[in-house]
Amino acid sequence: MPSPRYWREIPQRYRLEASKCKGCGKVFFPPRLVCSSCKSREFEMVKLEREGKLITYTIIRVPPSQFTDQSPYAMGVVELNGGVKILSQIADCNLDKLEIGQKLRIEFRKIYNEGEAGIICYGYKCVPA
């Protein structure tokens, strides 16, 4: 990920900042400029909850090149308390014991390094609660 793009996404990747539509109350993560529900362009910033449950998951065994050291690893759809669903890596878990409905919580982790000399990209991952 180029540094400028990583930098632009810091509010959502570091602090789980989402946008809540002032028109209809729908919450978007990552934030959007136009509400897909009521077409409003006015939003307020809200922070997502840091706990949730696993909705579904898959095991990645043939990952993109920058994630090869981490394979196999789990990617899941996680419903955070409050109802927003996010896509996240499930870290520090036993892949054979993951269960739908399992309680998870957000932790701040390295997502990947841009090689040995590039920037370190941080963000959220989910871990078993």
Partner: peptide, 16 residues
């Protein structure tokens, strides 16, 4: 530490 943990990630969690 797991491969995706370092001084910064642990500092963030302790500070939360």
């Amino acid at each position: 530490p797991s491969p995706d943990q370092d001084t910064i990630t642990m500092s963030v969690e302790a500070t939360h």
